[in-house]
Nucleic acid binder design. Sequence first.
DNA 1: TGTAGAATCGTTTTT
DNA 2: CGATTCTACA
Length: 724
Amino acid sequence: MKEKVQTSRLNLRPGSRTIDYRAELNPAQYQAVTTLDGPILVIAGAGSGKTRTLVYRVAYLVDQGVPPESILLLTFTRKAAGEMLARAEALVGGCTRVSGGTFHSLAHELLRRWAGRLGRPADFGVIDRGDMEAILSELRRQAGLGEKDRKFPKRRTVAEIISKTANKGGNLQEIMVRDYVHLLDYHQAVQTLARQYADYKQANSLLDFDDLLLELVRLLKEDEASRTQIASNYQYIMVDEYQDTNPVQAEIIELLGRDHGNVMVVGDDAQSIYSFRGASFRNIMEFPRLFPSVKIIRLEENYRSRQPILDLTNFLISKAKEKYEKRLFTRRGGGRRPRLLIMATEKEQSLFICRRVRELTAQGVPPERIAVLFRASSHSFDLEIELVRHDIDYVKYGGRRFLESAHIKDLLSILRAAATPGDGFSLTRSLLLLEGIGPKKAAEISAWVGGRRERLQSLQEYGAPAKVRETLAPLADLFAQIGAKGVGLQDRVAAAWDFYRPLMETKYHDDYPKRLADVTEFLRLARNYSSLVRFLTDMTLEPPNTSGSKNGLVEPRGRLVLSTVHSAKGLEWQTVFIIWAAEGRFPPLYALNHPEDLDEERRLMYVAATRAEDDLYLICPLEAKGGMLAAWPKLSRFLEDIPPELVAVHEDVTQTENSRRLARPPGPPPPPPPDGFAPGQRVSHPVFGLGRVLTQLGPTKIKVDFDHFGAKTLHLDYAGLKKA
DNA sequence: TGTAGAATCGTTTTT
DNA sequence: CGATTCTACA
């Protein structure tokens, strides 16, 4: 069969080193590694050697004579895949191939090969969330929906609703009733946009991330012959980070594994942090329903962190409302208690980290063994400024990515338009680059092309004044050049760049050099590929998150690591700083009202804290800033009730001023005491906006129902509440 | 009418 | 910094 999927290549040569499985693994790990038949569910705690177990299992299976290409290894993130590859190579090395990658890359590859069975073209384009949002706002503009209506749902929210509907298989209205009650007025409009979006994808041969998985399920379900044939390629299926999968992914696993049941999934319910895209830790508990003969193995020994860190993380997670009991322990003795630092300002926080990183590296700790973690990528902006000023080199994971920059999107859209003539979306974007062509003409021309390759390559024949034809000619030539047979990928990419370079020079004159560096990186990445389509889809499905990446992971050698908590999943460092552990940031403001969201935020804090091996710093600047924080600056609720013996408050940074601030929250200067508010009175709050007074609970306490944040109890001295 | 450029706004997390 | 909205001009 030629339908093997080889998205990532795991290079292994068992025998290049003798592995003594029994000695190198603990009994539970050993059992997981060596069980050959039937489904296995591994419930594992943080730092328990999950990846190690999977890697050893691959080696073991190969030792047992299982052909490596019939082992399918699936992970949720490309980072996890990269990590696994790296460890596997460290373990053995060699050149054996294992099938695998992310669910999305698997789906993409299978769909391309089997597109005919679904009656769709094999050269569909794949669009990411940014593309989806761009399409939605264009559709909204065209339909003239909610013009000048400031309350109209943002394109991001519309995209979210549509994606949730796809993932949960429910209907759009139900989803909106449950999660977007405040937008229910717009339900008709959203419904319309959803329909138009579906039509748009159909017309332009596009699939979004959700479609990839859903279409694969459709293929496997509707065509039993295809399913058996595809499934027979994989004798063993292994899934890492199973708590991050959604029901659609679970279905894929079931469909691929049901013939033999040799499916092993590994996960930790306490680390489920992707519910916003339909993942649920409940999936783990659903697994035995999919595979009733499952064997359940628990890995509870932690090999990463020292006991004082585990004491704290055990406490953190014990407060979660819903969880499966698990108590991690370690044999790693000694270690210091995690330190909790309250600072007056963000600046102090940044300076403290610079100073401490300097000290640590002076003591011989490699910078790449130190990480600073935060809830949202913007939280590190000030720190980044200070790091540059202190000449401390760093890499940053998460946040704005390479592909989101306009210049890379431009270049990519030219290549995509040329490679997939049906992709009118990319064609439109390419056309917009040309002088004198705006949204109207671009849409017109794109419609005229209508997916026909001949027309794409002779754009100048589009009936229009000579001036427009003149503008179009170079682009048509370029498409012809890229689309020509027998041209190598490098030449195609180079041609696109030759075309775009002068445009970029004028369009982004100010920061041309900075963007040029990105393009150079883009060209370098292209050198690893020989097929244009392959390159383009990898750019969408597994984009590098910054320059200098390998396996989607930046080599941090010699550099401090900055990361969002989401991107830190699965990684570990000797020393970890968690910054902005403050109400309104971690947990973020928008989570304060939803208990389920708060539970996920708590797990997020748990994931962050469990990344630390030896030392953990929790830092909270008591500074209200830009309306990001709660009513007044306050330590994160997750850390507030920690028993004092579990953390150390570091004295030399908690200066007198800070102690005073701690004793009484500072907040904005208290407004003159209002005369009192009557129930029903409309009020406005600096952070929560408009609302209606419910009851006054006492001289300083009042309960207000905010339009966008629900009911809240406020302290009148601090809240800055005004009559509206 | 449609395009280009200036001013303003807002910013979770990810496949 | 990118998206959106506003304004000037062809």
